[in-house]
């Protein structure tokens, strides 16, 4: 089980959180092509290594926040 640092509540068990996937996905500006729209909706980075990702403290303070986690070692920094 991961120990995830909520910026508000401090380190808490993974079971208190919901996962939100890759961080920093911005809603596209203005008109988009189908390809740009597909990229926004479906394409996500999937690195083997460090990953910026969103977590939601669902059973706590209900804050969304971003952490950087290593997808092999599970280290969070």
């Amino acid at each position: 089980m991961l120990l995830i640092p909520c910026p508000f509540c401090g380190p808490r068990d993974e079971t208190e959180f919901r996962y939100g996937g890759q961080a920093g996905i911005a809603y596209p500006d203005g008109e988009t092509t189908d390809g740009e729209w597909a990229a926004y909706v479906f394409m996500r980075d999937n690195p083997k290594g460090w990953f910026h990702e969103r977590w939601f403290h669902a059973h706590g303070c209900r804050t969304w926040f971003t952490v950087e986690r290593h997808t092999v070692t599970q280290e969070i920094r």
Binding site: L2, E14, Y19
Partner: peptide
């Protein structure tokens, strides 16, 4: 398991 991972193990919960 909910999160992205390449480490071949998951949570006991």
């Amino acid at each position: 398991d909910a999160y992205n991972s390449y480490g071949q193990r998951g949570g006991v919960h």
